Simulated assay, not measured.
Amino acid sequence: MKKIVFFLLVGFSFFSAVAQEKMMYGDISRKGVPFAKDPHVIELQGRYLMYFSIPPYSNKTGPENGWNIGIAESTDLIHWEKAGEITPVGEYESKGLCAPCVRVYNNKVHLFYQTYGNGKDDAICHAISTDGITFERDKSNPIFKPEGDWNCGRAIDAEVIKFKNQYFLYFATRDPDYKIQMQGVATAPGSSNFTKKDWEQAKNAPIMIPEYDWEGKCVEGASVIQKNNKLYMFYAGSYNNAPQQIGVAKSSDGIHWEKISDQPFLRNGKKGEWNESESGHPHIFETSGGKTYLFFQGNNDNGKTWYISNIEVFWNENGPYLKDKM
């Protein structure tokens, strides 16, 4: 009888551990320590592909030594293996590229990303792939940067979603003094192939600004999902390690947004936890089976390392909610 109880306890502990297993991914190829930021995930050809920003090498120089984009693959959204990298091929991205948004439209994989290292001249670019690993650049790149005296001319953190028969391109920019990070939006027709000529700034003003204490001077990293006839935007509030935390807003038209709370949806961790320094730069992802996961970046050493993790998000009539706050 004692042996039966022992095996039952061991079995229970094993299955409990499996059920509680958390994703924790960091690319060690560039710095020798885990370092991956800005996640974005798609489901393609029977597997998941995650795209993320990877930093310059610690021991190399040259055009490949800026911020680039890494690719990892998984079958369970927990365990990931490196599958490739996207590195500079054009002069406009020679200083770096990062912050990927990846969507599958018309059986093609579309990558929206930002140039990096050009200050106020950083802009949004586009590339196409059939396998999700090798990409062909859009000849009209960069495809978008904002206009108007409300911003500095920079566009980063692209997010694209199709809604009501048009495409919405969300981006982060700064005020003319380069201090306040804000959200803007551009649109393109539903028939668009995403070239520069198709994008039109939808509002000559920010669609979201930092308002609450926890948002500091920054709202960025928009990730948008449609539920019924509404869009929900998961966004990062405050600059990295301030701490950055994640909020949620909702919209019926894609342009006018209402924050659903004055508190973060996902906070940074407590002292000593892996995400003590921040829980930031969200990506909301829905599987083909209808489950929703919030991917996000975090660390507990003020940015010496960076990990990507995820947490399942649930929905009711009031919007998204969490059962387990990491």
Rank of each mutant, 00 (worst) to 15 (best):
T134I: 09
K139C: 04
N300A: 13
G280R: 10
I260P: 06
E85K: 15
L231W: 01
K259A: 05
D131W: 12
Q244I: 00
K82V: 12
Y105D: 03
S223M: 02
K179Y: 09
V313L: 12
T87Q: 12
I4V: 14
A172H: 00
K60N: 07
K217S: 14
Y178H: 13
I180Y: 02
G184D: 04
A72K: 01
N141M: 06
L8Q: 11
I42D: 02
D262V: 02
G66V: 01
Q226H: 03
C218E: 13
E211L: 11
W315R: 12
N268D: 07
K227S: 05
G153E: 14
G132Y: 02
W80S: 04
H110S: 09
K179R: 13
E276R: 08
P146I: 01
A36C: 11
N228S: 13
P320C: 01
P146G: 07
W315T: 06
W80M: 05
G90W: 14
G247C: 06
C218I: 00
C98M: 09
F285S: 06
H126N: 09
A202L: 10
S309E: 03
S74A: 03
W274C: 01
L77R: 04
H110R: 13
M326K: 12
E43D: 14
Y51I: 07
L9N: 09
D262R: 08
E278W: 01
C101S: 14
P88H: 10
I143G: 00
F15L: 11
P55Q: 12
A99G: 07
E200D: 11
G62R: 08
S279P: 04
L44N: 06
K217V: 07
R137Q: 10
A155P: 08
S29D: 09
N68W: 08
N310I: 06
N229K: 12
D262Q: 13
I156D: 14
R154M: 14
S140E: 11
S261D: 15
K145Y: 15
V41E: 05
I156R: 04
D198Y: 08
E317R: 05
Y57G: 05
Y232C: 03
E278D: 12
Q201V: 05
E91Y: 10
G11A: 04
E317T: 05
E258D: 14
Q166F: 00
A202F: 04
K3M: 03
S13L: 13
S74Q: 02
L111I: 03
L322P: 07
L77H: 06
I207V: 14
N68G: 09
Y113H: 03
S58T: 06
F52P: 00
F171Y: 15
Y25R: 02
S279H: 11
R103S: 14
F265E: 10
K179M: 10
K145R: 15
G303C: 04
N204R: 12
L111W: 01
M326G: 14
A17I: 11
P88W: 07
Y92P: 00
